[in-house]
Design a binder for these strands. Structure first.
Length: 273
DNA sequence: CTGAAGACCTGCCTGC
DNA sequence: TGCAGGCAGGTCTTCA
């Protein structure tokens, strides 16, 4: 479900709806998501105040107002919803937090690939989930010189490189395909054989597509929804993702689908080299 | 070291 | 209508 624009959309929605709320009561239906919740997870949340909500890569970071930080990854199908406290539990609802304004925060995750962890607010960046994470793609730290250094000598396909969170955070299958299309680079091209100029073009394309997707509230393909239940609209703007056999918006040629490292890649053979 | 493949889990769509 | 097979936005581990 969620890549950077979707997680950012969820973050903004939650910030609007639950920032400053105190957790009166926490409930956890099952703890065996991708990893078990940490011991004392539920009691650690009760009484805390959600003082800030940040994002790093595809992780949501909830500051709990007492020096602790709750880091949460949505996996493929994780969703947060803000609903009245008395609303019945939906299928696959695993966590429910009752808030001091009569609302509640629900976490739902059909495939249970999501996970959460508690850490110290001052040291979260050294936690194993974050210690080796690459720069944010929308920050100045992600630039052509850095990317070229990481690509040098590598024969692996460029698509896998930009999806590697150790290289740059937050880019998944959809936006990797869309960004490579925007830059005119074939997803199978060896990373080490792309000029600095074209890498700069790729960085520009990544930023353009991520910003446009955030602007549109993310992409709803099957089950992504915002915290308030509305769908994201960016899927309507896909140039190549999920469009195998359909015409390229630029040249009219047929979009192709290939499989790389077990993931679908979509591209235009006429426009991407 | 690199990179591909398998694993985790459920739901939905397609085709027979 | 039923059922098998393939597919799905992520990431970690294993193996060559």
């Amino acid at each position: 479900m969620p890549e950077l624009p979707e997680v950012e959309t969820v973050r903004r929605g939650l910030a609007e709806l639950i920032m400053g709320r105190r957790v009166e009561q926490a409930w956890c239906g099952r703890s065996d998501l991708r990893y078990p919740f940490p011991a004392g997870f539920v009691s650690a949340l009760e009484g805390s105040v959600i003082s800030r909500i940040d994002r790093r890569g595809k992780y949501l970071l909830f500051a709990l107002g007492d020096g602790r930080l709750l880091a949460w990854h949505l996996g493929m199908t994780g969703q947060f919803h803000v609903l009245p406290a008395q609303s019945p539990a939906a299928k696959h609802e695993h966590v429910r937090l009752l808030l001091d304004d009569g609302g509640s925060l629900r976490y739902r995750d059909a495939r249970r690939f999501g996970y959460a962890g508690l850490m110290d607010e001052d040291h979260w960046q050294s936690h194993p989930w974050f210690a080796h994470m690459g720069p944010e793609p929308l920050s100045e730290d992600f630039n052509a010189a850095v990317l070229a250094g990481l690509c040098r000598g590598r024969k692996s396909p460029i698509k896998g490189v930009i999806m590697d969170a150790h290289v740059v955070a937050g880019i998944g299958n959809i936006y990797a395909c869309e960004a490579l299309y925007g830059a005119g680079i074939h997803p199978g091209r060896a990373a080490g054989r792309i000029s600095l100029l074209r890498l700069q073009g790729l960085i520009d394309s990544i930023r353009t597509v991520l910003l446009a997707a955030i602007e549109a509230g993310g992409s709803s393909i099957s089950d992504f929804v915002r915290a308030d239940g509305r769908p994201g609209m960016f899927a309507h703007q896909f140039s190549v993702y999920g469009r195998a056999g359909k015409p390229c918006p630029a040249c009219g040629g047929e979009i192709r689908r290939i499989v790389q490292a077990g993931r679908s890649s979509f591209f235009c053979p006429g426009c991407q080299h």
